[in-house]
Computed example of a mutant assay.
Amino acid sequence: METVRLDKCLTMNFGCSRREAGIFIRKGRVTVNGIPVRDAALRVSPEDDVRCDDSGLQVVTRACPRYFMLNKPAGCVSATDDSEYPTVMSCLRDEAGGLFPVGRLDLDTEGLIFITDDGAWAHRVTAPSRKCPKVYEAVLEHPADPVLKEIFARGVLLRGEKTPTLPAELEILAPEKVRLTIHEGRYHQVKRMFASQGNHVISLRRIAIGGIFLPEDLGSGEYRPLTPQEIALF
């Protein structure tokens, strides 16, 4: 019978980090079959009665599909393997094979990316027909012209493209800092949209996909399982 680490069992149920799960366990808030356990590495199976503060937990093993969110750091590629750069998979040190990133972020772009082994779910996230909203925060070389709100809302024709971008929503947070919501995933789209208007993106970070926001306490290179409620959004 397959088993899973106790701290991972907590992260799957609560959407917390491994570090937070370890704190719960060390404080004696978790029992396995009625016995308080303080060993985060203890392996449990679906037959075990695992509880945290008297709340029963579902024990999910690797036989089930897996879904994670990762705060991608700059300098790693959105791929399962690369001969030149580290990949996003290197951040998921404790997970087995079979996982892959959902969509892509550029090498120097940071922020939210999903990792899974469920191909059908990944397709629902990335399918162009679903127009899944993705939210980015960008630091620009020059102050953002307020007229960009109207230009991006109409759509812009990028160099080498035959059709304009879908309407996008721009929010100016500071003179050189903006938040942009797009509903498609063209190559280098956010950077090219600003470049088409004579501006340059200095840094870029994705903070949300389809209503799931990157938690403020999830550090660069850290990951956590998606909750059942988050998974059900797609």
Rank of each mutant, 00 (worst) to 15 (best):
Y136A: 03
A144V: 04
L157E: 04
G155V: 01
I151Q: 10
A127Y: 07
K131A: 15
Y136G: 00
A144N: 04
A153F: 11
L140R: 05
A138R: 02
Y136Q: 01
A144Y: 09
L140G: 08
G155M: 05
R154P: 01
P128Q: 00
V156G: 04
P146N: 01
P128D: 03
A127H: 14
A138Q: 00
V125P: 04
H123R: 13
L140S: 11
C132Q: 14
V135D: 01
S129N: 08
T126K: 06
K131P: 12
H123S: 14
H142L: 14
V156W: 00
L157R: 08
L157S: 07
P146Q: 09
P128S: 10
L148H: 05
L140E: 09
A144W: 05
L140W: 07
A144T: 06
A122Y: 02
E137N: 05
V139H: 13
S129E: 13
P133R: 04
H142K: 15
R124S: 12
D145F: 07
V147Q: 13
S129F: 00
A144I: 08
C132S: 13
E137W: 05
A127M: 08
K131S: 15
V135P: 00
V135S: 03
V156T: 12
E137T: 09
P143Y: 08
V156K: 07
V156A: 09
F152G: 01
R154K: 15
V139F: 13
C132F: 10
E150F: 11
I151P: 01
A127V: 00
A138W: 02
F152W: 10
D145H: 06
C132D: 04
Y136T: 02
V135Y: 02
H123G: 11
H123T: 13
R154N: 10
I151L: 14
E141T: 11
E141D: 15
V147K: 11
K134Q: 02
P146T: 06
P146S: 00
F152E: 02
R124H: 11
E137P: 06
V156L: 05
L140C: 09
G155C: 06
R154D: 10
A122H: 00
L157Y: 07
A138T: 01
V135H: 03
A122C: 12
S129T: 09
D145C: 07
R154M: 08
V135E: 01
L157N: 04
A122G: 14
V156R: 03
H142F: 14
H123P: 07
Y136R: 04
P128A: 01
V139T: 15
